[in-house]
Design a protein around this nucleic acid. Structure first.
Length: 479
RNA sequence: CGGGGCGUGGCGCAGUCCGGCUAGCGCGCUUGCUUUGGGAGCAAGAGGUCGGAGGUUCGAAUCCUCUCGCCCCGACCA
């Protein structure tokens, strides 16, 4: 059997990523350019992600609904910035039932327009507000350059669309959601993403304020991992979403929209995984622990399987997502590598020696090789494994946080900024002018990621032009 | 859209320059036996009109023309 090893992460990060997605069995290339097939294992991961978020949204008063995939072309033309932003990447349906359509239909790249249209029908009174709807589904953008999970033509996401009676309330909604996103990344994905406001050039097409969470990947590039937008009355005016307030005055709504997409799976890969393959945070892993029984003779098999089955039931009853690998056509060594490739946090080996000693071998995925292997008693194994899962979760977050902080630089001048953003992020004062932002982008391909909410007390001078600056911004090369 | 690479069994490739027996190899797959504590071994099998169309030729995976598609690197983007 060939070893079929993964390209080393340090040798070719991009190639490592592509191979990993395929070898970990998360996704496959589809016959249509730029599209992917999410395989059962990848979808199970996505389902764990969606389950957590769905629960959070419902707990904060949101409800789910479904809007159509096809949107009349004319809807896009109602909001000027929105159409300019999305026109280049629209897929358009021109024929149906063998006939050319009177009006072309756009395959939704995002649903503000059709939802705005529907909201205008539904909202008449201040009593109809707020509307807090989330749609789970996929959208399509004709991307020029694609990469599995990170940027595919069709991708999966939720898009929240809310309409409110007042500016304050709408802005609060935007921030509330961003908090949910931040907490999700931190507590579930073990990714320490940074909350902040996008610059004008990096804003969503049609938004007044765009906020984002930005995460650092292993190659130190930034990935926008979630966004939450405040539209003011832009879309309300474009789609005439109006209501009578309690003074009988006609008012426009304030709307928001927000999303996390399946690209978050790309983030999980690029933040945590290693040369052995995928590393998943236990809280999101489809399989949290796998049992690999080891035996030679039929007699040994009976004894080993008895213990393995007992452990399986015990851990399952304890709520651990557990898998028994009873394949008899591959060797134990193959299984070890296979489950490491798939990122299962804990592996439990049960062999004849363990049966004798009433022990098992535990291997933790976040520390590959001998270092992460230990021998523990079979008694109270559910507690041992649960504890270990928590420890792994914490350790992944700690490692990612230390890595991020070690690679955020505070350059003293512009020359140093140009240098540090080639292999890290720069956190610097910026005058918030478009000129300075563009200059950085042209000089070193780094863009402003966001202006974090967390700011130092004192003011400073723009790292580019030297003019007074109130706030610091993250500059980084981004995906 | 610019630059680069590639289309040959399921996957990865060789063969193409310089046309010639029945198109090879590795992995995977199937069956059997031996194996199983870090990617097992042996044996026997199944599986390909060489991306597509046209042309040159006695003869094309190979030469010519056209075409389709994919991947990677840039600009754009979640």
């Amino acid at each position: 059997m060939a070893e079929d090893k993964l390209t080393k992460r340090a040798d070719d990060f991009s190639e490592w990523y592509n191979q990993l997605v395929l070898k970990a069995d998360l996704a496959d290339y589809a016959p249509v350019r730029g599209c992917m097939v999410v395989k059962p294992y990848g979808w199970a991961l996505w389902e764990n992600i969606t389950a957590v978020l769905d629960k959070e949204f419902k707990a904060t008063g949101h409800v789910n609904a479904a809007f159509p995939t096809l949107i009349p072309m004319s809807f896009f033309e109602k909001e000027k910035e929105h159409v300019e932003g999305f026109a280049p990447e629209l897929a358009v349906v021109t024929h149906g039932g063998g006939q050319e359509l009177e009006e072309p239909l756009v395959v939704r790249p995002t649903s503000e327009t059709i939802i705005g249209y529907m909201y205008s029908k539904w909202v008449k009174s201040w009593r109809d507000l707020p509307i807090l709807i989330v749609q789970w589904g996929s959208v399509l953008r004709w991307e020029l350059r694609t990469k599995l999970f990170l940027r595919t033509a069709e991708f999966y996401w939720h898009e929240g669309h809310t309409a409110h009676a007042g500016m304050q309330e709408a802005k609060e909604e935007m921030y509330r959601i961003l908090d949910i996103y931040e907490r999700f990344c931190l507590e579930e994905a073990a990714i320490p993403a940074i909350k902040g406001t996008k610059s004008d050039t990096e804003k969503f097409a049609g938004a007044q304020i765009t906020t984002s969470i930005e995460a650092m990947m292993w190659d130190k590039r930034a990935l926008q991992s979630g966004t939450s937008h405040y539209f003011g009355q832009n879309f309300a005016k474009a789609f005439e979403i109006q209501y009578l307030d309690n003074n009988n005055t006609l008012q426009f709504c304030e709307t928001t929209s927000w999303a996390i997409s399946s690209r978050i799976i790309g983030a999980l890969i690029m933040v945590h995984s290693d040369d052995q393959g995928l590393v998943l945070p236990p809280r999101l892993a489809p399989i949290q622990a796998v049992i690999v029984p080891i035996f030679k003779t039929p007699e040994e098999k009976i004894k080993v399987m008895e213990v393995a089955e007992r452990i399986f039931k015990e851990l399952k009853a304890a709520g651990i997502r557990i898998k028994m690998d009873d394949r008899d056509n591959v060797s134990s060594g193959f299984k070890f590598n296979d489950w490491e490739m798939r990122g299962v946090p804990v592996r439990i080996e049960v062999g004849p020696k363990d049966v004798e000693k009433e022990s098992v071998a535990l291997a933790r995925r976040d520390r590959p090789g001998r270092e992460g292997k230990s021998f523990v008693p079979q008694a109270d194994l559910n507690l041992t494994v649960s504890g270990l899962l928590v420890e792994i979760q914490d350790s992944l977050l700690k490692r990612a946080t230390e890595y991020r902080d070690a690679n955020i630089h505070h350059p003293k001048d512009y020359e140093e900024l140009k240098k540090v953003v080639q292999d890290g992020w720069a956190f610097s004062y910026w005058c918030e002018s478009r000129e300075c932002e563009t200059k950085v982008k042209e000089d070193c391909k780094a863009t402003t990621r966001n202006i974090p909410f967390d700011q130092p007390d004192e003011e400073g001078l723009c790292i580019v032009c030297g003019k007074p600056s109130k706030r610091k911004v993250y500059f980084a090369r981004a995906y």
